[in-house]
Design a protein around this nucleic acid. Structure first.
Lengths: 342, 342
DNA sequence: TCTAGTTGCACAATCGATTATTCTTTGTAC
DNA sequence: GTACAAAGAATAATCGATTGTGCAACTAGA
């Protein structure tokens, strides 16, 4: 077997035709250029025999198109993001695109580097879940006319489409459910306080409380992490006035919170009720299964890709329409972690 | 601001030098080609002013090097794989490589397509966790001299390096621990029975049983999935002779198994003991925290990348040495899911 | 002053694929 | 028999970066 990789030239030489003809056949435009059936078949047969695979770098250079989509996400170790990547990846591959991934570890510096690196690789489009609050590198993409879509996290003042859960709505509903169950002292353990999902969720919590005539009881924490949930819960339970319920704004926060509660001997839901976001699969199997806001991951990913591919294929230069700001209302999955209190 | 992307030609034209000189300065080989300090500075200043980013497709084509590593994995939704990808991604980006990801959804067909697509993109190297049992597409990579390293799953008869947990050892130890706690009727719920980790784990289970004079009690299941764990446990508990312990060969299987046990009213560990693999973070928070074999994900990923980059950078054409078949013994994390029985 | 060597930079080919343009041959109509 | 059209395929430029080789201009030593 030949060690040399076959190129269009290899094929052209072995069957004595020009590069042009071979290229046209392989691109399926033989008819358009009146290439005879016989020639077409000879080319195809030879390409097959040599195991020809077109060099993408050459195509990319010539066509200024990479057939690749860049994916920039905060942290793959978080199952919620991993799920999004999984779905996005699958759909894009079906559509013939490669996926170039970067995990930014929630650091803005890495995010900027990633966006620039992807830009150098001529991405046909990008899907970004921003880690930081900086926008300059993202605006530069618009100048370069690279289509971008945000998932989950977004900037409202940027003319870049986004698809996300209606975080506000989810938080509002689940807080109202807690209130309906008699809770007043509901503590909210938040994530990174500069990202949109967190801002909206906190606002939902606040509005639900106020809407029912209560002041927000407590808002603390500063990251979508296990550690933040753990520390914040420890602090929380040492206050003179303890909460009757905790609303964790992510599953990672929840696990930390549960660990703190368990260490201090609090039982769920007897001693304290708890609710969370994200609805990871293991919530059903915890000591006490936890009620959760369930984000429609598959829908979000699918819609985002549709938006992106539309932009890529039409290159519509029109401004941002309302249809490109999409929020999907989440469902709430009821489990046994919330007790009714008088 | 200019909308056109700056190229080397742009820079050369605006300061009146040749492409050659600009390229050499930007590649940091100015000294080698005796380019004056003054010229060098003019070039750098202009590149900076124009926000020049080298076109990777052009470099890739010319250098036959993509500065990218292909990653082929079975399923990102599985936290174990997501963690691997997270670590791999981070280390590679530090080293200046991009990561091109494909999730194969555990399908061999997708795996083959992915490997070919990555090959067309001239990957400098690839890290593969095979989904299927086919090897032809992987052998073709050796012909093309693309360095490859397997992680977690591997083929012993292929001259391709691998880094994995010592699955056999892990299964042996945890089974012996169950035996030491008085268990004899230990059921083993397996994953995909054609992949190496599963084969080795099952063998460890069998050898531990036999080593202590017992016949393997039960081996069932056929996938690293929630469903397999659930169904198999339902079947298992309907047998006339019930197990006193279950060894789930992954966390996903575990969750399914726990659901089945809970539905039928069995308590862990009072009615039945249970142990698992993977040590996901949520194991601590289950109704009964579950004892688990903990795979050294970070170590595995780090070593695999070291092997790969060594191969890429030296292009050592030497055969596979023993040092390129690396198995790391896992630790066991003891929790309360295993009861001592008389 | 002349030669040999050094300094500073440019020419042009190359990587593989695409494509507008051009060229040749064959067929057809009057 | 001439003119012209259509069929079938080739020439050559192009995308952006890299690099072996070549060529002035200048310097230093004899």
């Amino acid at each position: 077997m030949q060690l040399e990789t076959a190129t269009i030239k290899t094929i052209a030489d072995t069957i004595g035709l020009s590069l042009t003809t071979v290229s046209r056949v392989l691109n399926g435009v033989a008819k358009k250029y009146r290439i005879s059936k016989a020639t077409e078949e000879r080319v195809l047969a030879e390409a097959d025999r040599l195991g020809y695979i077109p060099n993408q770098a050459a195509r990319n250079l010539r066509l200024k198109k990479s057939f690749a989509i860049g994916l920039v996400i905060p942290n793959l170790a978080n199952p919620f993001f991993a799920n999004i990547v999984s779905v996005v990846n699958q759909v894009l591959h079906e559509r013939g695109y490669s996926v170039i991934l970067t995990d930014c570890n929630e650091e803005e510096k890495l995010e900027i580097e990633a966006v620039n690196a992807l830009s150098a690789r001529n991405m046909d489009g990008m899907i970004v879940i921003p880690s930081g609050r900086g926008k300059k590198h993202l605006e530069l993409l618009r100048q370069k006319r690279t289509p971008v879509v945000f998932i989950d996290r977004y900037f409202e003042d940027l003319a870049i489409p986004y698809v996300a859960t209606n975080h506000y709505d989810g938080a509002l509903k689940i807080t109202e459910y807690l209130i309906a169950n008699g809770h007043r002292k509901i503590a909210c353990l938040q994530g990174s306080n500069h990202v949109m999902p967190n801002i909206k969720r906190v606002q939902g919590y606040i509005d639900a409380m106020k809407g029912h005539g209560h002041d927000p009881f407590y808002i603390g924490g500063n990251g979508f992490t296990f550690e933040s949930g753990y520390l914040e819960t420890k602090l929380l339970m040492q206050r003179s006035e303890r909460p009757t319920a905790i609303l964790a704004l992510s599953d990672t926060i929840l696990l930390g919170s549960l660990k703190a509660l368990a260490e201090d001997g609090y039982r769920v839901p007897e001693d304290i009720s708890i609710a969370t976001f994200d609805n990871s699969v293991y919530l059903d199997f915890l000591a006490c299964p936890v009620t959760s806001v369930s984000q429609p991951v598959t829908d979000i990913a699918t819609i985002a890709i549709k938006l992106l591919l539309d932009k890529i294929e039409q290159q519509s230069t029109s401004g941002l329409t309302e249809q490109e700001k999409i929020l999907i209302s989440p469902a709430i999955i009821y489990r046994s972690s919330i007790a009714s209190i008088p």
